[in-house]
């Protein structure tokens, strides 16, 4: 007889009293005070993420402005010499910018065809077990710390390139480009592969239905449909390459001159900051100049990421 043993289920005969009775005081305390505090923390965390981006930008801007009070912005942006410890010092960012652009272009020319090609292979050609092995290998590559690749660049790749191209030193742009291409591959492969496999099955079936081969379907239907995602992959790959520090610091020869080819030593934006920060005096123009370089870097990667995000959004639609 369930009706008679109902005292354990809170009776609703006296609703007003049971409100207070069933809600044990601990629970009421938690709901009234504990939960608002937790929800406040949650909101604050969300705010903090935005604050961090702002702060990063703000600190870079603040210290950059300290430079521009002493050293004209125009000469920084268009100056063709980076001579921070000569007298008077020159902080022209052009050589560093060109260094970054050269190395990045070199890397992209190598890694985009390789990355997209292997993404096509992994997504469309490889049988399932091979696919898993390949994806794990790409993940392994993604997790190799850049300093390790830089080390291998110094002791192995640079000498090989020097001998191959008969250079005076193997520490040059090309070494950097090759290693950076290698490092950007996981980003390009995984995002391109996502883009390829998210092309609706119906597209493929329609093409097969018309008698197209798998290759024709892939080349004429799937690849164009995935183009937004693949462009996003390329942009994110570029972002990765532009921002990479240790490899270029270790293998590109660190010559802050306007490069004429990838076969000579050069110096990127990132490597300049990493290489010179330790030797500057806090509050000197040189010190502030490095923040200005950081600001340029921030602006470049910010733009690249915005564009990539735009492509990704379009891909999702």
């Amino acid at each position: 007889m369930p009706n008679n043993s109902s005292e354990s289920i809170a009776s609703h005969a006296e609703p007003r009293r049971s409100e207070a009775g069933m809600l044990a005081s601990v629970t009421r305390w938690r709901r009234k005070i504990g939960e608002p505090i937790i929800e406040l923390c949650i909101r604050l965390s969300g705010i903090l993420v935005v604050v961090f981006v702002f702060l990063i930008f703000l600190f870079l801007l603040r210290d950059s402005l300290s430079l521009f009070r002493q050293y004209p912005l125009r000469r920084f942006l268009f100056g063709t010499a980076w001579l921070p410890i000569s007298e008077p010092p020159q902080f022209g960012v052009v050589p560093l910018l060109l260094g970054s652009i050269y190395v990045t272009l070199g890397a992209i020319v190598i890694c985009v065809p390789l990355g997209v090609g292997s993404a096509m292979f992994i997504a469309e050609v490889a049988p399932k077990h091979l696919k898993n092995v390949l994806k794990s290998l790409v993940e392994i590559l993604a997790s190799i710390p850049s300093v390790v690749l830089g080390f291998l660049g110094i002791i192995w790749l640079a000498p090989v390139l020097r001998n191959t191209f008969h250079l005076s030193t193997g520490m040059c742009g090309l070494t950097g480009s090759l290693l950076l291409a290698f490092m950007a591959l996981p980003t390009i492969i995984s995002i391109s592969e996502d883009a390829l496999i998210s092309v609706p099955r119906t597209y493929r079936e329609a093409a097969f239905g018309l008698g197209a081969t798998r290759w024709q379907t892939l080349w004429r239907i799937v690849l164009p449909s995935a183009s937004s995602g693949i462009l996003a992959a390329v942009m994110l790959g570029i972002g990765r390459v532009v921002g990479e520090t240790m490899v270029v610091l270790m293998v590109t020869g660190n010559a802050p001159v306007i490069p004429r080819s990838l076969l000579q030593p050069l110096r990127t934006l990132t490597a300049t900051i990493a290489g010179e920060m330790g030797e500057t005096v806090g509050g000197s123009d040189h010190y502030y100049a490095l923040f200005a370089v950081g600001l340029v870097l921030f602006a470049i990667t910010f733009t690249i990421n915005l564009v990539a995000d735009l492509f990704l959004r379009r891909a999702r639609k």
Binding site: V50, M277, L297
Partner: peptide, 23 residues
């Protein structure tokens, strides 16, 4: 917030180094 997350993920590690140093 979403934009900030996207941009945080794209900021070069050396810029984090600079920020960490000043901040």
């Amino acid at each position: 917030i979403k934009l900030s997350v996207v941009n945080l993920s794209g900021i070069p590690s050396i810029v984090y180094g600079l920020f960490g140093f000043t901040a």
